[in-house]
Design a protein around this nucleic acid. Structure first.
Lengths: 105, 105
DNA sequence: CAGGTAAGTAACCGCAAGGGTACATACATC
DNA sequence: GATGTATGTACCCTTGCGGTTACTTACCTG
């Protein structure tokens, strides 16, 4: 999961994911969408590949990248524990609010 | 959310969160639990503070840190969109498996 | 108020990440 | 097989981050 979180920490790489979330795209298309030059994008794509977040398909000279959201499952599971915590807090907050209402009546 | 993801990308900082998930702790206690020296931990704590992931309470010279898991809600919401994607894929996979079973009978 | 403890900051070092330019590789076409 | 296009890699440079030691700040206690 470390590699995934590291990949997610970069804004450009998240942008790539957002694009791929809607449709697969070639490396060139992705580079056009980012404010950095092709080589830089290639490197970002390598990070995403190694983190298991994207898949590559060869189409002649083109490399078509597509999303592999399964890699995010690990992060999701990690967050699940915390989700229980904040859910608990929100519940407590709601209880508090309800109590306040009751007291005011 | 950027600050939060940046904070999460570091193993040491995640360790701090894991500790605080169970109980509040002073900066010194956290430093003892990590393989790095106090000043380093102080900086990690600052990152976590600025990302809104922890709260500080003063107790004489001690600074007691506690978790504020609410900050992770943003990440959770961001992941939610992807969750729909992989859920869809897993459903498709299960359908495929079911179909395979049926074919074999 | 002197001494001790807890935490944070400052200055410094080393390394790894991220960007760009230039080059190499793969494939399609003429 | 020469040319053009799409992509990735090598190299260099700069920046930022993490770690350490040394110092400052805050607070408690005798």
């Amino acid at each position: 999961m470390d590699a995934v979180l590291h990949a997610l920490a970069d804004e450009s790489r998240r942008t790539v994911l957002e694009i791929l979330r809607h449709h697969p795209a070639s490396a060139g298309e992705l580079a056009e969408a980012l404010p950095i030059a092709r080589p830089g994008v290639s490197r970002h794509l390598r990070v995403l590949r190694e983190a298991g977040l994207v898949d590559v398909r060869h189409d002649a000279q083109r490399r078509i990248y597509s999303l592999r959201p399964e890699a995010l499952i690990g992060v999701d599971e990690w967050l699940a524990d915390y989700r229980a915590l904040w859910q608990h807090r929100l519940d407590a907050l709601h209880t508090e609010i309800a109590r306040g209402k009751k007291a005011r009546t």
